[in-house]
Amino acid sequence: MPLPGLERLFDVCLRLKLSVETLPPAREPPRAGCSLEGLPFDPVLADVYARLGYAAFATELIGAGWTLDRSDDQVHKLKENNRWWRENWWEGLGEPVIVFGGDIYTYATVPSLADALGRQPVVEVDTYEPEAHVMPVASNVDRFFDSYSHYLEALAAHPRYQKSGDRELLFPWDMAEVLARDEQLVELIRAGRFESLMKNMQESNATRRWLAKVTGR
């Protein structure tokens, strides 16, 4: 399966001279649909792990860099993290998810919201809060990489970043317009498919405003 979003992310990092670290994939990477903590593994994520055992993008931008959990023949972080999440977070979230990487926050796919091709949407989970805060960020993993690459571009183009390295923009918070181009994601949000996961965000005015920007409502 082509991964144009991931390729774009590599290109953007190269162009902006941002760091990229990768490790080769496992001899037998997790396959699409295989069981991880009893959940079907996302096919797009399976394609990613078929190419890479680990990746870290723009991590010199502390707070903005993003890393893919390592899963190769030496380290099984992907598996370990998902076990930890099943034991500690699934109940609180009210829905099982597969975590696969993150920046300050954890990024996860949601198997129950997979499309006809089995592609699972991506959410950001903020576990700094006593009750996790969830924000939808992409209709699938590759789309997330695409949006994140646009975020890095916007960050680098920001005048204050150019002058002083300030990272004024946050992903996905300041990228509502980019996320709004992900029609499948917008449809899922409009249909209320993330509502149960977002139950702890309902009191937040900022979240409501952000959702309205993404969905155009």
Binding site: A56, T59, E60, I62, G63, A64, G65, W66, T67, G102, D103, I104, Y105, T106, T127, Y128, R167, L170
Partner: peptide, 24 residues
């Protein structure tokens, strides 16, 4: 939180690398 992380890495430069690597 983003500010705090960046500030902590400046305050304790010896942790900067591991903060980058381990993120969340």
């Amino acid at each position: 939180r983003k500010d705090a992380r960046a500030y902590y890495a400046k305050l304790y430069p010896r942790f900067a690398k591991i903060l980058q690597e381990q993120n969340k």
